[in-house]
């Protein structure tokens, strides 16, 4: 790891000011992605600004028709919170292992936008809104590409608001070694209709319009029987071929619908 200047931020404004003053600054949340990246010398920030002291980024607030989760809330806290809907708790509980869940955060996972990360599917599947220190961004506009998001340089995620859904569930086929999703599918009967989000299959999580159309008419696993996903733009690596991932998308979608009831 190259050395850097470690700074603690006391507020969102303080963090933004420290980033702005740094030559090439980055924020650190749980560090479960950033530290492995730094160890491999894939990044060389001049300053690393720690968000853990910012009270505004913590806590889970249940509203009448949504729940708002602070960016620094850990996966373990989400998994264990009775204010969080079961489908979202299950997403958090399925991430990595207990030690990763004790440090890794919602904001870090969303900002990182790993192609095989779980939370992006939940945000898209529930039609969540990402609140930053600058603005609100709809999940549909947030995940823009491989490790790419709509965040500007120096923009910090404050919280994510998840609207309640009538029914929702997530089904994940974990890579047996890393636990990341080979393919994960989140399905929901949301306020604006049926939403299906797929992670692990392409360069980043995305909606599944074919699956949504089929489930809108008939909310049952059987409704997905005839559907095939073309493998052309799907990820292919030592863990799974594009054809296998295409197959998994439909299988996971069916399992998610069955689990949602």
């Amino acid at each position: 790891m190259y050395n850097f200047n470690f700074q603690s931020a006391s507020s969102l404004d303080d963090a933004a000011a420290k980033l702005a003053a740094a030559e090439d600054g980055t924020v650190i949340a749980g560090g479960q992605t950033l530290l492995p990246v730094l160890k491999q010398r894939l990044a060389n920030p001049s300053d690393v600004v720690d968000l853990s002291g910012i009270a505004d980024l913590k806590g889970i607030k249940a509203g009448a028709d949504s729940v708002t989760i602070g960016a620094m809330v850990t996966h373990a806290e989400v998994a264990g919170s009775s204010d969080v809907p079961a489908a979202l708790r299950a997403v958090a509980e399925g991430i990595g292992d207990p030690q990763v869940r004790n440090r890794g955060t919602l904001g870090g996972s969303v900002a990182n936008n790993d192609p095989a990360a779980d939370y992006p599917a939940a945000l898209l599947g529930l039609g969540a809104t990402i609140t930053t220190n600058q603005r609100d961004i709809a999940a549909d506009d947030f995940f823009t590409g491989l490790f790419e998001t709509a965040l500007n340089d120096g923009e910090i995620i404050k919280s994510v608001t998840f609207p309640n859904a009538t029914k929702a569930a997530y089904a994940k086929f974990p890579n047996p070694a890393s636990r990341y999703a080979m393919v994960g599918v989140f399905v929901a009967q949301a306020a604006d209709g049926v939403r299906v989000a797929v992670t692990g299959a392409t360069e980043c999580a995305h909606r599944g319009p074919k699956l949504e159309a089929a489930l809108s008419g008939n909310w049952s696993a059987d409704a997905l029987d005839g559907i095939s996903i073309p493998p052309e733009h799907l990820n292919s690596d030592i863990h799974a071929s594009a054809e296998y991932r295409a197959h998994l998308v439909v299988v996971m979608a069916k399992r998610a619908v069955a689990a949602a009831g």
């Binding site: 603690s8 560090g31 492995p36 990763v100 004790n102 440090r103």
Partner: peptide, 26 residues
Amino acid sequence: DTSQCGACVVHVNGDSMKSCTMLAMQ
């Protein structure tokens, strides 16, 4: 040293964490 194996797990404020994936300053 890549956050996978758990040989470095310690308790920090009562929770188990991988001490190879945490800065001393954290």
